[in-house]
Computed example of a mutant assay.
Amino acid sequence: MSDSATPPAAQDRITYDEFARVDIRVGTIVAAEPFPEARRPAYRLQVDFGPAIGVRKSSAQLTVHYRPEELVGRQVAGVVNFPPRQIGPVRSEVLVLGFPDADGAVVLIGPDQPVPNGGRLF
């Protein structure tokens, strides 16, 4: 993978069909709590992706910029078609997406206006 300062090399480029296989949806965080068992500070999240997908669990290292009570009600983007992954006692079912700040801490991404849960990124 290339970093943000380097454009992708020709061999790293993907087709639109490859991109379309990554199912990125919008959901609303309905629960967030500390995850003290995690190796690095993290929260356990429950994200509602609408009736077709439902509520999915995740572990996310968001403790630098967010408190649990600030996360509840926030819409976020997440990859919903990765296989579940066991992270300590949590079975993570979705990858919540963000960008690193200047120090590498996660800043969440999501819509700048409310949209229906479950909407797919295109």
Rank of each mutant, 00 (worst) to 15 (best):
E18Y: 04
A42Q: 02
G98V: 02
F35G: 00
T63K: 03
V76N: 06
L45Q: 03
L71T: 00
N81Q: 09
Y43D: 03
Q86H: 09
V64T: 14
P84I: 03
V76S: 06
V47W: 01
G88R: 09
N81T: 01
P41G: 08
Y16D: 14
P111A: 10
A105D: 11
V76F: 11
E70Y: 06
I109G: 03
I87D: 06
F82T: 11
A42T: 06
G50D: 09
P41Q: 08
R74Q: 15
I24L: 04
S58L: 01
L45I: 01
E69M: 08
P41V: 02
A102M: 11
E37N: 09
A60E: 02
H65P: 10
H65K: 05
G104T: 07
G88W: 02
E70V: 10
D17N: 06
K57L: 10
V76I: 15
A105W: 14
V22W: 04
F82N: 12
I29T: 03
Y43Q: 03
P68V: 12
V76E: 01
I87W: 09
A102E: 14
V106W: 09
D48S: 13
K57V: 15
G73L: 06
V30G: 07
P114E: 11
G27M: 10
R74C: 07
N81E: 05
D103N: 15
A102G: 13
P51L: 09
V72F: 06
G98H: 02
P100F: 05
L95V: 13
A31N: 10
R85C: 07
G54E: 06
E93D: 09
Q46V: 05
I109Q: 07
R40D: 14
A60C: 14
S92H: 03
D23F: 00
V30R: 06
P100C: 07
P89Y: 07
Q46R: 15
F82Y: 15
I24C: 11
P100M: 12
D101Y: 12
Y43E: 02
G27S: 08
P83Q: 12
F35R: 01
D48P: 05
L71W: 03
E33A: 14
L71H: 05
V47S: 02
D103M: 11
P51G: 08
Q86K: 14
P51C: 04
F82G: 08
I14Y: 09
E37D: 15
G98R: 06
V107Y: 08
I53Q: 09
F99R: 12
L108Q: 10
A20K: 14
F82D: 06
H65I: 07
G88S: 13
D48V: 01
D101C: 09
E93V: 00
Q46L: 11
K57H: 15
G88H: 12
R44M: 12
L71Q: 08
P41A: 13
Y66D: 00
R13Y: 12
V22T: 15
